[in-house]
């Protein structure tokens, strides 16, 4: 029984990590700029499609027809020559193999630009307006992003293979001194979890140990006073928006091998991650991370057959149910500060 529970716990980690990363970005934006960003799921999706684009470029190939040979069904044989391999040889093959992790390098600057552009271009005008209007404009932006992706990449999911070395399963049970081959876990999910841990740790370290982070934290506590001290807090908050976009984008890139991205990926994750933010407590960064993992793991447990036998359909609604209960019983969420958005 312990093995089963431990396995479900592990299964919840990768989804929980994705929720935590998206919720972290949402909370950064809400905590700094006070904006409820319904377009954050779209940023996650844009990141995923950065990976798709990178792979498309890396796997570009020339197609020539070899007139001397025929394919088994008698048509002229097409010779496909991958360009990257032709130019770079074995190194090119490695590049293609590792296209997903490599895309992160390209995703970071792109998402930073997208985030800063979004904030300067549109969201900046909505600080003084109501939360309802912020929801509406970002919801509109999310629709636009989703439709642009749909018209460029088509409506079908585009599978992204993971690097060949990282396929297969890790025998975690054996590592922990248990019986071999009882608890196995796909390597890529493990990597996703570690990656999420590194990113989350990085964001917290950035906020905690750098002067920039200190100023941002001060601004989150009291924006006006920090502004009066002669610090250009608006610019730092803009950069934080860019950082949130980068976190969402990287989360999207690394998630592509687990779930082939399609155009409504963002919307699918958006609703859930909003629920995560609310459960964790609006504006609380540790709360967002904790709630992300908590809900991911709860969802994993709810989809066990034993649980479903007692509460049919619980796996479909568990996250919403938790959110409703938390909101009704403890509106500031698990770790929300007293008085912040308590209404």
């Amino acid at each position: 029984m312990f093995e089963v529970i431990f396995l479900q716990f592990l299964n919840g980690l990768d989804k929980g990590a994705a929720y935590a990363l998206i919720a972290l970005g949402l909370t950064l934006v809400f905590g700094t700029l006070g904006v409820v960003n319904f377009a954050h799921g779209a940023l996650f999706m844009l990141g995923a499609f950065c990976a798709v684009t990178v792979r498309m470029f890396l796997t570009m190939e020339t197609v020539t027809i070899d007139p001397e040979k025929l394919s088994p069904w008698g048509a002229p044989l097409e010779v496909r020559e991958p360009l990257v391999q032709a130019w770079l040889g074995d190194f090119g093959a490695v590049l293609v193999n590792y296209s997903v992790p490599l895309s992160i390098l390209i995703t970071i600057p792109i998402m930073l630009l997208v985030g800063i552009g979004l904030e300067r271009g549109i969201i900046k005008h909505f600080y003084k307006r109501s939360h309802a209007e912020q929801i509406l404009v970002t919801f509109g932006l999310a629709i636009v992003a989703q439709e642009v992706i749909k018209s460029v990449f088509g409506p079908n999911p585009i599978p992204q293979p993971m690097p060949t070395d990282l396929r297969g399963a890790a025998d975690i049970g054996a590592w922990l001194g248990m019986q071999a081959n009882v608890i196995t876990y796909p390597v890529w999910r493990l990597i996703y979890f570690i990656f999420a841990g590194v990113v989350i740790g990085g964001v917290f370290a950035f906020l905690q140990f750098t002067t920039f982070g200190m100023v941002v934290r001060a601004g989150m506590a009291d924006r006006e006073t920090v502004g009066l001290l002669g610090i250009n807090i608006d610019r730092r908050f803009t950069i934080m928006f860019g950082l949130a976009a980068v976190v969402a984008g990287m989360a999207g890139v690394m998630y592509t091998p687990l779930l082939p991205p399609n155009y409504h990926l963002g919307m699918d994750f958006l609703v859930l991650s909003f629920v995560v933010v609310v459960v964790g407590g609006m504006g609380s960064l540790p709360g967002a991370v904790a709630a992300g993992f908590l809900l991911g793991i709860l969802q994993s447990f709810a989809s066990m057959n034993q649980v479903k036998a007692i509460f049919p359909g619980i796996d479909q609604i568990i996250i919403y149910l938790v959110a409703v209960i938390i909101l009704l019983v403890r509106p500031r969420g698990l770790m929300g500060r007293r008085g912040v958005m308590e209404a």
Partner: peptide, 14 residues
């Protein structure tokens, strides 16, 4: 406010 929006959203999704 936003909590109301999220609650209605959660019920509808359920």
């Amino acid at each position: 406010g936003i909590y109301f929006s999220i609650l209605t959203l959660a019920f509808a999704q359920m």
